[in-house]
Design a protein around this nucleic acid. Structure first.
Length: 278
DNA sequence: ATTGGTTCCTGCTGGC
DNA sequence: TGCCAGCAGGAACCAA
């Protein structure tokens, strides 16, 4: 599932129920994620109060009253489920981490493919210089992201713009789906060399990125491969996809009439309309 | 420094 | 219906 809009949707679903809560009990049922969950994870997390939950790129960050940061990444198949009064509920298959809260809520982290990540970092300064965070690009929905900022990050890159958008050093939070969707809206071909995105074209792409991400968040994210929100309901932005997984269908842009194509770039599928994306 | 390819893992889909 | 190859939203790692 999870690109920026799905992580943001997860955050919004969890924040009110988690912030201020005591984490009474931590159960790790499977430590083998992208990095193994550290041996002292439970000890450092249990008994702490979570003061604030936020998102950076595709990461969820929880600040604890100890000053440590609880870091979560959903990888390809991770999701959280929040069960009200669920402290007695039995965890299911691929529920790798279980948090029981003072409120009686139970939080389950489920991740079939185990590409997700869960760890604790000692403090905010440690987070800033951590290898996972040090090189992250700007937040696309933040104030500092605009055409010139994007162009600066794409300058000197010889590869295609689509591949560049997936690089978290360029912009943080875009994944394979929203890269194709943003380029479609900006009428830019995914095959165009990244370095040629400047000026008006960069402005158009920056605006398209912001717009598609904001709309997806508004729709509760995209639910493909049955990915659900923290309350089990589905997002519905997948119905608004204009190119992703639509190869062979007609372009919906007025007067275009092009046929959506699927190509592979850096091993990932890209979708675009050759009729109007240049 | 940037890049494309490969890899981790499970589950679903489509073709036979 | 059953089987199995191929593919999937991420990103670290490697060699070039």
């Amino acid at each position: 599932m999870p690109e920026l809009p799905e992580v943001e949707t997860t955050l919004r679903g969890l924040a009110d129920s988690l912030e201020g809560q005591l984490i009474e009990r931590v159960t790790v049922r499977e430590r083998r994620l992208r990095q193994p969950i550290a041996a002292d994870f439970e000890k450092k997390l249990a008994g702490r109060r979570l003061t604030r939950l936020e998102r950076r790129a595709k990461y969820l960050l929880g600040t604890l009253d100890s000053g440590a940061i609880w870091v979560c990444h959903l990888g390809m198949s991770g999701s959280f489920r929040l069960l009200a009064g669920g402290n007695g509920t039995a965890p299911g298959r691929h529920d790798h981490v279980v948090l029981d809260l003072g409120s009686g809520h139970r939080l389950l982290f489920n991740d079939p493919r185990r590409f997700g990540l869960m760890m604790l970092i000692d403090d905010a300064a440690g987070l800033e210089r951590h290898p996972l965070f040090r090189h992250l690009g700007p937040e696309p929905l933040g104030n500092r992201f605009n055409g010139p900022a994007l162009a600066a990050r794409l300058k000197g890159r010889r590869g295609p713009v689509k591949s560049a958008l997936l690089d978290q050093k360029v912009v943080a939070g875009i994944g394979n789906i929203y890269a194709s969707e943003a380029l479609y809206r900006a009428a830019i071909s995914p095959r165009r060399r990244a370095a040629t995105i400047a000026g008006q074209r960069a402005e158009r792409l920056a605006r398209a990125i912001r717009a598609v991400l904001a709309e997806a968040i508004e729709a509760g994210g995209s639910s493909i491969r049955d990915h659900a929100r923290v309350d089990g309901t589905l997002g519905y932005f997948q119905h608004a996809f204009q190119v992703y997984d639509r190869a062979g269908r007609e372009c919906g842009r007025a007067g275009c009439g092009g046929i959506i194509r699927r190509i592979v770039q850096s091993g990932r599928a890209s979708f675009y309309c050759p009729g109007h994306q240049r």
